[in-house]
Amino acid sequence: MDSLATDIAMGKGEKLDTLAALLDIQNKSVFAATLQQNFSAIYTDDQVSSAQVIDNILTIIG
């Protein structure tokens, strides 16, 4: 979980690319920037589970 969180916070990285591919995202840079800007809404607190993270991401990208 922490490596994806790191990628999201940095706005780039291999885990983020993999996630974009899995979600079949066309515009990767917009995807990365959106997640970065919404970091606090994805990782709401230090108890957040992986499932919640995925749900939060899906909510954000609509």
Partner: peptide, 17 residues
């Protein structure tokens, strides 16, 4: 986890570098 999220949250505000 607490410290990591604190750092990442701060980092996420600084854009792509």
């Amino acid at each position: 986890t607490r410290l990591l999220l604190k750092l990442l949250r701060e980092r996420s505000k600084l854009g792509l570098q």
